[in-house]
Design a protein around this nucleic acid. Structure first.
Lengths: 202, 202
DNA sequence: ATATTTGTCAACCAAATGGTTGAACCGAAT
DNA sequence: ATTCGGTTCAACCATTTGGTTGACAAATAT
């Protein structure tokens, strides 16, 4: 019965992912997850004991998916400008594959800031140190203007992540349909990198 | 008994604001709002009929508070660079006064994109047209490099709003305490404006 | 083949939750 | 003093919700 067991467990995790990421912890219902996984509600508790634990499993999975993306900026050996261009160009593809994920992680971290400490233990938890060295090095070598690595990192994240988090608001303000907004996002793949590099290049 | 009536109604709205903005629609409990307003739960329904309507009252209020901030970028007569510096410098003060507000608006708009249409009717709903003219004018006058007004607007919003929305995540990644993070945000008041202007200035 | 463990479900359960009701209360007008 | 409209609350109510139980089926081990 091994196959089936793992199957059900995974089926639950996938259903839970969909529901939790779309509606958040508070807005999600165990029944909806069970329905989506096409199993009985008892099964959820059989495999994950409680809503809280199921949620944490989903959250950890989500974070483990997001972390490598952040590490592309923080812990990659490529040259700074390439790195910025690469991340910016790739992030949109990531969002298309996991539309609710970044916002989900950010929101639940807002409601439960302690989670970040639990995540820090993980071996691939993104750290800023290496990036900091790289930025400071680029500054001393006269490649970019002086800027705090933290600020630059925040800027890269902001410019890439925010438009997707605030999509409905921005669509409303700019007054474009979803299709047109997607085109704007598509153009950002290159424009945002240029925007950043223009700003820091010497 | 007029005074008391308005008092209770306002007291409810304030309590509801606090609870809704911190926990979102789904995570909020009518009882908690009643407790915070120091009144009976029945009063909530007496004045606002249902959770949904109370929520919408809070949301509209929140949006009406946020709109003027956005209009400082979109519908202000000041010169482009001043405008960017001004907005960037002021936005942090706004967030300190209303820490949960921007995220609240964005989140609930995500869960209910139709809300933006209801808001568009309001007379001070921010529109991008005027800003667009200003940016295109600055481009033809050779003051800034070519850039879509929409992209520039998204960039300004991203760089200013995102750090507060993702504060717990960013704090975790950069590995600083709240105090230190606040200092980073304080520095952004000027640095973000420079970052933007550096990027677009000719 | 038999016992044992593992997986699945329908039926339940207690607590929480949004909402309702009816009576009491209060200030103002008659 | 009485009436009357608006205000307040305690007690209720129906439904939802996370979670449990006990029986049964399906594998696995003996």
């Amino acid at each position: 019965m091994k196959a089936k067991e793992e199957n059900t467990e995974l089926e639950i995790l996938n259903a839970a992912k969909e529901v939790f990421q779309e509606k958040g912890m508070a807005g999600s219902r165990m029944q909806e997850i069970a329905d989506k996984a096409r199993i009985n509600k008892s099964m959820l508790h059989y495999y994950y004991r409680s809503k809280q634990l199921l949620f944490e499993a989903v959250f950890k999975n989500a974070f483990r998916l997001l972390a490598p993306q952040l590490n592309k900026v923080l812990n990659d050996d490529s040259e700074l400008f390439d790195k910025i261009r690469n991340f910016t160009n790739n992030y949109i593809s990531f969002v298309i594959r996991h539309p609710y994920l970044p916002n989900f992680v950010i929101q639940e971290l807002n409601k439960n800031p302690d989670f970040i400490e639990k995540m820090r233990i993980e071996k691939d938890f993104p750290k800023v140190e290496k990036f900091k060295v790289q930025v400071e090095d680029a500054i001393t070598r006269g490649i970019i203007k002086p800027i705090g690595a933290e600020q630059l990192f925040i800027n890269i994240m902001s410019l890439n992540i925010f438009p997707f988090i605030a999509a409905p608001l921005l669509q409303g303000l700019i007054n474009v349909e979803e299709k047109e907004f997607q085109k704007l996002m598509e153009r950002r793949k290159t424009e945002v990198a240029d925007f950043i590099i223009n700003s820091i290049r010497l």
